[in-house]
Design a protein around this nucleic acid. Structure first.
Lengths: 190, 190
DNA sequence: GCTAAAAGCTATTGATCGTAGCCAAGCGTG
DNA sequence: CACGCTTGGCTACGATCAATAGCTTTTAGC
């Protein structure tokens, strides 16, 4: 029996890709084993449990999303940064539904949890978007929550086919981003 | 063996309540059977499958949410109607996470599906909110999607503990509703 | 009261997660 | 080069769950 040459990172990556493919169906150990050309129990040499695997996928997803946000926002500010960040999240949810579901489906155990740190990084990108609007400090936390709500809500509704198809969703997305941009500009330095 | 006097509606109601209690854990037939004082296989006399049961919970939830929206919006318009509708959804997600998860986790099979009709009714309430703002017709569909995104996003993030606890979430919610109200008013008859 | 449908049950199948314990592959060290 | 030990695969098994088959009792309708 030749070895498959697996490592926890490789297993997690394959699991994340598989979860994206079969989403919204749940990932199973047997399915992942089959994908890796291995029998089910062998996976437990690399991950502790299905819950542990999901946690690793969540961390991977949060890290990738954070990286994508940073890269897309390079050199942008104001409405451009807002549009870029929103589009990144939307695209990520569409292309990586399994990863995204894992990240939102789990709560970090504490502030030391690597997952908490990765999520904090994505929050930092949203905060950076808002910095371009020069809001009064007491507005900032609420504005961040608004941003997250709009982007998360739009992306997940779209991904679950929550919008009827008769009107272009891209157009609605651009309209929504412009709506938020207008509102935030109205809040600037007052 | 005395009969438990069950009917599909009673089973669905108990299942929805149980799903709300154990959320975010998934509902299982065995758990529901135990709750009803019955053995697992007996449930199949009333529902076809777990998927069928979930579908029934979704329909129940969508209907209840639609009713709550209509009732809360009685006699209100503009910002008051917006605030009432948003609060209804937020409260519903918090108090009935199992029902809500079922409704968003399923896509209706067609326009004849009772679930589609129930969801359409809730959409109608959002449309009624917007009517108070007298938007240009080409804005309406986008504004509805914005509303749904904000409310759904905020409520689900809050329910999954997505917001850190250090700042009051009620305050953020009121701020968010006011933000949307301001934006919609800025769009009126232009 | 009789019949038949409805509603409970036990037994079983197949899928899944996870554990226990075995065995070979391949690395390091003498 | 050989020996051994860690590593990573395996088979076998137990527990839990969804779902089906088939039996029995309750209960409603005539």
């Amino acid at each position: 029996m030749p070895r498959a040459g697996l490592a926890p990172a490789a297993v997690t990556l394959a699991a994340a890709d598989l979860a994206d493919e079969i989403s919204p169906a749940p990932l199973s150990m047997s399915l992942l084993a089959e994908r890796l050309g291995v029998k089910g129990p062998s996976l437990y040499k690399h991950v502790d449990s299905l819950a542990d695997l999901t946690r690793r996928i969540a961390l991977l997803g949060a890290t990738e999303l954070g990286d994508a946000l940073r890269e897309a926002m390079q050199g942008l500010a104001g409405g451009d940064a807002l549009a870029a960040a929103a589009q990144v999240v939307r695209t990520f949810v569409k292309e990586h539904p399994g990863r995204y579901a894992a990240t939102v489906g789990i709560t970090p155990t504490g502030p030391e949890d690597p997952l908490a740190i990765a999520l904090e990084r994505t929050l930092g990108s949203f905060a950076a978007v808002l910095r371009g609007y020069h809001l009064a400090p007491e507005h900032e936390i609420h504005a961040i929550r608004l941003l997250r709500s709009v982007v998360h809500g739009f992306a997940t509704l779209e991904a679950s086919n929550g919008f009827q198809m008769d009107t272009d969703v891209d157009e609605s997305f651009a309209w929504t981003v412009a709506f938020v941009d207008r509102g935030l500009r109205g809040l600037s330095d007052e």
